[in-house]
Computed example of a mutant assay.
Amino acid sequence: MTDPDASLHAFQALLLQGDLTCNISDALERSGALGASVRPVWPEARLLGPAVTVRTLGTDLSAVFEGIGAAPAGSVLVIDSHGMTHSAFWGERTTRAALARGLAGAVIDGACRDVSAVRRLGFPVFSTAITPNAGLPAGRGAVNVPVAVGGQPVHPGDLMVADENGVVVVPQARIQATLARVQELLSAEQALFARTSSAAELSPEGDSA
């Protein structure tokens, strides 16, 4: 039996090398990427970890704090706020709470605020918008349910990976197979780059761009 933690450690090592989201998308046959509007709140942010999902209702922040409280260390909070951009679902308070829990980052189909504080605290956040407006808790929403973020379905336990290129999601059942395919593609690509700089030979053949 393959150790899931070993797979995560292997992915983490690859994340440090750069452009891992591109490699994963290639391994998933050019799929898995969230929409291009999901961008890092601060430059060079990157994250990797299993998803803890949150579905908000209106401008209610309650489920976000509930999700932080339920999330184990190393996980990524994935917030489906239905693309709402006029009210923020993340800021300095959520960042400090998430850091205290040991979370690896947050991905939001919606807005973030307190950007300077989030950057200063070094917490990776990827969102679709920035706004000063904040939501208020009202006791509504859901945690650890299937959500849709950036046009991609995300289930609790799916692997979230984000870097300068964007965000990709790897279904939980495909994590180990995707890692093996990423390693295979990287090995083949490195051998190709070492062998040639010919445009004809570097033209993609279905495996990489």
Rank of each mutant, 00 (worst) to 15 (best):
T2A: 11
L8Y: 13
H9G: 00
H9D: 14
F11I: 05
L14T: 03
I24T: 04
L34F: 02
L34N: 05
V38F: 06
V38Y: 07
R39D: 01
R39K: 13
R39M: 06
E44G: 13
L47T: 02
P50R: 15
P50Y: 09
V54S: 02
G58A: 09
D60F: 05
S62D: 07
G67D: 07
A71G: 07
L77N: 07
D80Q: 12
S81M: 05
A88M: 00
W90T: 04
G91S: 04
A106Q: 03
I108Q: 08
D109H: 09
A111V: 01
R113P: 00
L121Y: 12
G122T: 02
T128W: 02
T131I: 10
N133A: 15
N133T: 12
P137F: 10
A138N: 14
G141M: 09
V143R: 08
V147W: 01
A148H: 11
V149K: 07
G150L: 06
G151T: 03
Q152A: 05
P156H: 08
G157A: 07
M160D: 02
D163S: 04
V167W: 03
V167D: 01
Q176I: 04
V182L: 11
L185K: 09
L185C: 06
L185Y: 04
S187C: 10
S187W: 12
A188K: 14
Q190F: 11
F193S: 09
F193T: 08
A194K: 15
A194E: 13
R195I: 01
S197H: 15
A199K: 15
E201Y: 09
E205T: 15
